[in-house]
Amino acid sequence: MAKFDDYPKSLKKTLRYIKQDAPLAQLSHIETEVLNSIKNRKEALEKVKKVSL
């Protein structure tokens, strides 16, 4: 697993924002967006993996 310092600057800024400044109302929206993005990326990678087999 990568160290925090190895992540892209944009991700580090996002995580710091969530930890320090994000209000409760935004946390739910941020959570939904992040989870959807991760799900979509996993599905795309699985499709590529299946095609290359």
Rank of each mutant, 00 (worst) to 15 (best):
I30Q: 01
S28H: 10
L35T: 12
K13S: 08
K47W: 02
K47L: 13
T14K: 03
F4N: 03
D6G: 11
V48Y: 01
M1F: 06
I30M: 08
K47R: 14
S37Y: 02
A2M: 06
L24G: 09
L11G: 02
F4Q: 05
V34T: 11
E46M: 14
T14S: 03
K50V: 04
E33D: 12
I38G: 01
K49P: 00
R16P: 00
L24E: 14
V51N: 12
T32N: 12
K42C: 11
Q26Y: 12
E43A: 12
F4A: 05
S37D: 04
K47S: 12
V48R: 10
M1H: 05
E46W: 07
K42Q: 10
E31S: 15
K13P: 00
Q20I: 06
N40A: 08
K47C: 03
I38D: 02
K9E: 14
T32Y: 08
Q20H: 09
T32D: 13
A25N: 06
I18H: 00
K12C: 05
K50L: 10
H29I: 15
T32A: 14
F4H: 09
P23E: 04
K19C: 01
L27N: 13
F4Y: 14
S52W: 09
D21H: 04
E33R: 07
K9A: 13
F4D: 08
K47I: 09
E31Q: 15
H29W: 08
H29V: 15
E31L: 15
N36Y: 05
K39H: 04
A44H: 04
I38N: 01
L53S: 12
L35E: 12
E31H: 14
I38V: 15
E33N: 09
K42A: 10
L15F: 08
A44P: 01
R16Y: 03
L24N: 13
L53G: 08
L35C: 14
L11A: 11
Y7N: 07
L24W: 05
A22D: 04
H29Q: 14
T14H: 01
P8D: 06
K19T: 02
I30V: 12
Y17C: 02
L45K: 06
V34H: 01
N36R: 10
K9W: 02
K19R: 12
E31A: 15
E31M: 11
A2P: 04
V34L: 15
Q20P: 00
R41Y: 06
R16S: 10
V51F: 12
M1L: 07
K9T: 14
P23Q: 06
